[in-house]
């Protein structure tokens, strides 16, 4: 009738249920799955078996880059490109550069945090297969959703449905791309 499903989605009614479902899906060995809830559910990261984010390393790298940029920019401009004596200070005066060093370090680190977070989350996404799923509209109100993608190595439609049923899902639906 139709192309094979992009994934299978199941709806749960409470945070406790979705937490248990996520643990069961993790323990069943699935890797390509995601959970969508109306609000952040504590411990979901552990229940899903997510590893610690690598974002801090991106931020640290960007901070170092910002610091180096500020030193280089001011050192070159003030010391070499446009040498000009101000207040009788040496051309390369580190104390005078510190505010800019501080600001650029923070700015670059903040860029690293925001854009790094977006990149790791593959955002912005203008389209997602779940948008076409009718029950999924409840995700912003009172629905707790878990979806296993068919690209997962272990994905077998019957197994997934059975797993969701055993967990007590209210609705189980195929999601098409």
């Amino acid at each position: 009738m139709s192309a094979p499903a992009w994934g299978i989605v199941a709806v749960f009614e409470t945070p406790a249920e979705i937490l248990r479902a996520a643990e069961a899906v993790r323990d069943a060995g699935y890797r390509r799955f995601d959970v969508h809830t109306p609000f952040p559910v504590h411990h979901m990261d552990r229940a899903m078996g997510l590893r610690d984010t690598r974002l801090p390393w991106v931020i640290l790298g960007m901070a170092v880059l910002g610091c180096a940029t500020a030193v280089g920019l001011q050192g070159w401009a003030m010391g070499k490109g446009y040498p000009f004596i101000l207040s009788g200070k040496p051309l390369f005066s580190l104390p005078a550069f510190v505010p800019i060093i501080f600001e650029l370090t923070v700015l670059f680190a903040a860029f690293g945090a925001v854009f790094g977070m977006l990149a790791f989350n593959r955002l912005p996404a203008l389209y997602h297969p779940l948008f076409k799923n009718r029950p999924f509209s409840r995700v912003a109100r009172d629905g707790f959703f878990i979806v296993i993608e068919s690209s997962d190595e272990k994905f077998k439609a019957e197994d997934v449905r059975k797993l969701f049923e055993s967990l007590g899902a209210k609705e189980i639906e195929d999601v098409h791309d």
Partner: peptide, 12 residues
């Protein structure tokens, strides 16, 4: 500490 130092250093 640096805010205090820099203003004094700069004004000299």
């Amino acid at each position: 500490a640096f805010s205090q130092y820099m203003l004094i250093w700069y004004a000299n």
